[in-house]
């Protein structure tokens, strides 16, 4: 886990985080802070956070601490990244079959930046679903 990225400690904080941002994407990593995959993911996010500061703001959520969204967002994976823009859930066609989220640790920083940029551009154009610059279909995570 990263101590440098802000944590959200309740459902209300999550909601506030999503609602309060008007210009940028809200990227939320759901997972357990102590999980190995989560730690790797957090590291990547921390590394890129400053680079995408104009496009996105990144929060972390411990799904044990805030279980409110587990059912709603099917948070059953070890690490999940979801994107929101102006209180709208942004979807991305990654080729995996699940367009709602990234539910595996994406360890390439540039890929992460590309994905965030793509979603940001799509969101600014009013799209609800964007297509990922890279097809992740070969990587079956479950």
């Amino acid at each position: 886990m990263s101590y440098f990225l802000p944590h959200l400690h309740s459902g209300w904080h999550v909601d506030q985080a999503i609602l309060s941002e008007q210009e940028r994407l809200v990227v939320i990593r759901f997972g357990r802070d102590h999980d190995e995959e989560c730690i790797k993911q957090d590291e990547v996010l921390y590394r890129i956070a400053e680079k995408v500061v104009n496009m996105a703001v990144i929060y972390l959520v411990d799904i044990d601490e805030v279980p409110d969204f587990n059912k709603m967002y099917e948070l059953y994976d070890r690490t999940t990244i979801m994107f929101f823009y102006r209180n709208k859930h942004m979807m991305i066609d990654l080729g995996t079959g699940n367009n709602n989220k990234i539910n595996w640790p994406l360890e390439d920083k540039q890929e992460m930046i590309d994905i965030i940029e793509t979603i940001f551009r799509g969101a600014r154009k009013g799209k609800g679903l964007v297509i990922s610059p890279k097809d992740y279909s070969t990587r079956h995570r479950y």
Binding site: L8, W12, L19, S20, F69, E74, N87, H89
Partner: peptide, 29 residues
């Protein structure tokens, strides 16, 4: 990144708050 710290993070959540309700969140299956 350190200077980004929205002030709601310091606030207490209201009691009996139903998560997602306030922003009309919809889930998915």
């Amino acid at each position: 990144m350190a200077n980004f710290y929205p002030d709601f993070l310091n606030m207490q959540p209201p009691p009996n708050y139903v998560a997602g309700l306030g922003r009309g969140a919809t889930g998915f299956t």
